[in-house]
């Protein structure tokens, strides 16, 4: 049997049920207890993952194999280099902007090739 707004009765029932359960779930997940639980769970997960990674690193280093943490450190270093490059690019662009995007200066003439002593004598 169709409900109002051309919505079937089963859908109305599902939507009502969802709201009935949903509102309770929402009040649970916004409660202080839930936030405390989430924070503790996050910290526990981080501690576990650090411990596990440490063990893994030691094992892999025994065989001179890089671990995930080494790769991460490398990526961090690369990120730092990229950030510095980006900052340099920005300041260069700013300088170009401040000088009114003047055309590039003509390339300086290359130094003449060193003359031989015989040429010099001439």
């Amino acid at each position: 049997m169709a409900a109002t707004n051309d919505r079937p009765a089963w859908l109305d029932a599902v939507l009502k049920l969802e709201r009935a359960i949903g509102s309770r779930v929402e009040s649970v997940v916004t409660s202080d207890e839930f936030f405390d639980f989430t924070a503790h769970a996050n910290r526990a997960r981080k501690r576990f993952s650090e411990t596990f990674e440490g063990l893994q690193e030691e094992c892999l280093h025994l065989f001179n194999v890089p671990a995930g943490t080494d790769v991460r450190r490398l990526r961090e270093q690369l990120s730092r280099v990229e950030r510095e490059l980006e900052a340099l690019t920005l300041s260069l662009a700013d300088q170009a902007h401040e000088t009114g995007d003047k055309p590039k200066a003509k390339p300086r003439p290359r130094p003449r090739p060193q003359t031989t002593s015989a040429d010099a004598d001439e």
Binding site: L11, V14, E18, I21, V29
Partner: peptide, 15 residues
């Protein structure tokens, strides 16, 4: 913010 709303969205899709 609304963990169960996916149920309603999928039910509406089915219809």
């Amino acid at each position: 913010q609304a963990p169960t709303v996916e149920v309603a969205r999928h039910a509406t899709l089915l219809d």
